[in-house]
Amino acid sequence: QVALSRTQVCGILREELFQGDAFHQSDTHIFIIMGASGDLAKKKIYPTIWWLFRDGLLPENTFIVGYARSRLTVADIRKQSEPFFKATPEEKLKLEDFFARNSYVAGQYDDAASYQRLNSHMNALHLGSQANRLFYLALPPTVYEAVTKNIHESCMSQIGWNRIIVEKPFGRDLQSSDRLSNHISSLFREDQIYRIDHYLGKEMVQNLMVLRFANRIFGPIWNRDNIACVILTFKEPFGTEGRGGYFDEFGIIRDVMQNHLLQMLCLVAMEKPASTNSDDVRDEKVKVLKCISEVQANNVVLGQYVGNPDGEGEATKGYLDDPTVPRGSTTATFAAVVLYVENERWDGVPFILRCGKALNERKAEVRLQFHDVAGDIFHQQCKRNELVIRVQPNEAVYTKMMTKKPGMFFNPEESELDLTYGNRYKNVKLPDAYERLILDVFCGSQMHFVRSDELREAWRIFTPLLHQIELEKPKPIPYIYGSRGPTEADELMKRVGFQYEGTYKWVNPHKL
């Protein structure tokens, strides 16, 4: 086992960053958080920038500027975001240094004079007029057009580079997404736009490419001749908990499936790229999406959770019991969808996408189930092999396979070949997804960000279904809070070829 401390991990990262040409360590950078008073800024962006600063992973002359409508001070920003920093008493001095680099400007999102004030403020910072500028839009999409237009007109660096990070949702359907994309691309070049999907920053999602293309053993079996089906799962054990009003506007397909799960599907299904260059990788992902037809209604199961009468606390409440959810809402909190990649490698292999709230566990994984062994000599005792990439929690890679049961006879039983990170790298604290992705933006690497043509294809696949749901308002199937979801989803999976045995229990190697 390799035991690495946080300091050692960050030392390795620093070495990698400083050796590259793309990370300008000594240049002045300004990180501007648009929507600095909001939840995302408070819980994710400010803490992430602090962790990067604490670990010495930001360029040395980096300033952080918050911008929002609320009249706040840096002290206010500190008060609301610091509880999420997880700072230790030993880091007190470092924390003071961090907040000394912070400033805040209040202004409207659609007022040109406010942006001119913001620009004057940035120019007044040390070497601010020639600094590289990175704008993070932690804002609702309704203000994107006004904000990007004003940034472009008043706040661009004339000497350094300018980059803009856009948070999902990128529209509600193909038409609104196209409108937003066309607007942003009329102001910024594609190499300046970073559409963030934080799932692409997760260690195991990034590991998929290495697993596939750096190991000879997987190449020959990664196709329709050997793989019976692919299941991509995202499960949350909690409901909307008072935030249903926002969720109800989008629903589970827009929230998770059309982005996170579809991105994971691309990494499983794509061909080997010409290189690890950002556009070479994204070219292959677009090719996969172009091979997927629009979702067919007979390959869809929609569910909505109801309270568990035997549960406790939140578990007793259904989705419609959330006071922020519109009365009688038919918005799905669970969806199972089957897609097919219609190309030579994957023809006929079902890709089953499942996601839901208020389920029995927290889990995100990719599961490849292989065909049955031909010419069975073990009297149907063999179960199908599976390769599982567990994204969260407890990152893991393992192969479910058959071995001989101890004893006199040739009785096979299920076991696993474990390729888990935790076994080799004991207690290594890896940077989280937002840390990686923000560092990628500083480096100018777009590999783990969504390109406009990729986004367009993703919406093309799901828009007809979303429009049909909005028009017909089908009643989702009720499922109990804390269950596996509607049984109809299991029946759909069985119908397209997935075999669920229920006889195997994964042993978490992190707890051995």
Rank of each mutant, 00 (worst) to 15 (best):
D280E: 03
N360V: 03
G348R: 09
V306I: 07
Y398I: 14
M270V: 03
P412S: 13
D322S: 09
K285L: 05
M447S: 04
R456N: 09
Y504P: 13
M264E: 04
H379L: 09
F449D: 01
C291E: 07
E501P: 11
D432K: 12
E294D: 11
M257K: 00
L387M: 04
W506N: 13
V397Y: 09
E361F: 04
N423D: 11
I377V: 14
E413Q: 11
T487C: 11
L265G: 02
G303K: 00
V507F: 15
L302S: 03
R282N: 03
C443M: 06
A315F: 04
M493E: 13
V507H: 14
R451C: 09
F378Y: 05
T503M: 13
V306F: 08
D283S: 11
P509W: 07
Y305Q: 01
N298G: 13
Y421I: 14
H379A: 11
R367D: 02
V373I: 12
D280A: 14
K426V: 13
A335S: 09
P273Y: 00
S278L: 04
E344F: 05
T399N: 04
N298A: 09
Y340W: 06
N385S: 09
V301D: 01
D432S: 11
S275W: 03
F370V: 02
K494A: 12
H379G: 12
Y500F: 13
I469M: 14
P326C: 12
E416V: 15
V391R: 15
V428T: 12
G422N: 07
D283G: 07
C266R: 00
K505N: 11
Q499W: 14
C382R: 13
V286S: 07
P326Y: 10
N423I: 04
A374F: 12
K404G: 15
S278C: 13
G328E: 07
R451G: 10
V388T: 13
A269T: 03
A336E: 12
A269N: 01
G497Q: 15
L267T: 13
Y421D: 15
P474D: 14
K475Y: 06
K363Y: 06
Q380H: 06
Y500A: 14
G348C: 02
A358G: 06
L368W: 01
S415I: 12
G482E: 03
P474R: 11
I438H: 00
V301M: 02
K363S: 15
K404R: 14
K287S: 09
Y398D: 03
P431H: 06
D279R: 10
N277I: 10
C382P: 10
G444N: 08
L455D: 04
E488T: 07
M408D: 15
V388I: 13
K317E: 15
T316R: 05
L465P: 02
G444C: 04
E454I: 03
Y479H: 00
S415D: 02
K429R: 05
V338Q: 10
R460F: 00
V441M: 04
L437T: 13
Q296R: 12
F370A: 02
D310Q: 07
I292V: 13
R451F: 02
N277F: 11
G502W: 10
L302V: 11
F351K: 00
T330F: 07
N423F: 09
R495L: 06
C443I: 08
R390N: 15
R436H: 14
N308P: 03
S445C: 09
E395D: 15
H448L: 15
P406C: 15
D440V: 02
T463Q: 14
K357A: 08
V288L: 09
V373T: 14
E342M: 05
E365M: 03
A433Q: 15
F378N: 02
L437K: 15
F378I: 02
D321W: 05
D376G: 15
T420V: 06
L430T: 13
R451H: 13
C266T: 14
G313Q: 03
Q468W: 10
R282P: 03
A489W: 05
L320W: 11
V441S: 03
M401I: 04
A374G: 15
V306H: 08
E284F: 03
T487A: 15
C382A: 10
V397W: 12
A396P: 10
L368N: 01
M257A: 11
F334Q: 03
Q468G: 08
T399K: 03
I480W: 10
V337G: 15
T420D: 09
G407C: 14
P476K: 01
P478C: 05
F498N: 14
L492I: 12
S452Y: 04
R345F: 07
S275N: 04
G348D: 03
A433I: 15
K505R: 05
I438C: 04
C266H: 00
V286L: 14
Y479F: 00
F378Q: 02
T276R: 10
F498D: 15
N343Y: 00
R384D: 02
E414D: 15
N411M: 05
G485S: 03
E472L: 09
A374E: 13
K287G: 13
D279P: 12
L368E: 01
L417K: 13
E312C: 09
A374S: 14
Q304F: 01
L437F: 10
R484H: 15
Y500Q: 15
L430R: 14
Q381K: 13
I352F: 07
P406V: 15
I292K: 02
E361Y: 06
S445F: 14
T463L: 08
S415V: 14
P393V: 01
N343E: 02
P478G: 12
L320V: 08
A335N: 02
I480M: 13
S278K: 04
L302E: 01
G422Q: 05
V397S: 11
Y481I: 09
E454S: 12
Y500S: 11
L353Q: 00
D310Y: 13
P486W: 01
M270G: 04
N427P: 14
E435H: 09
Q381P: 15
V441F: 04
G407L: 09
P509C: 10
N394S: 04
E472W: 06
I352G: 02
M402I: 10
K494I: 12
L465A: 12
K272Y: 05
K475L: 14
S415Y: 10
S275Q: 05
E314T: 10
R424F: 12
E488H: 06
R424W: 12
L339Y: 01
M447F: 08
M257F: 11
R484Y: 10
F409T: 15
G482D: 03
M447V: 04
R390A: 15
A297Y: 06
W459F: 13
A336D: 03
M264W: 15
A364Q: 12
V295D: 01
F442K: 01
R384T: 09
M401E: 05
S483H: 05
A332D: 06
L439S: 07
M270A: 04
P412R: 06
N508A: 10
W459E: 14
L302H: 03
Q263V: 03
T399G: 13
R367C: 13
G307M: 07
Q304Y: 04
S452E: 04
G375V: 07
N360G: 13
Q304P: 01
K317R: 11
G356S: 00
I389M: 10
A489G: 04
V507R: 12
H448R: 10
R354T: 10
K363P: 02
L302Y: 03
K357G: 03
D283E: 12
V397E: 05
E435Y: 04
V268N: 01
R460S: 03
R424L: 09
I377G: 03
F410H: 03
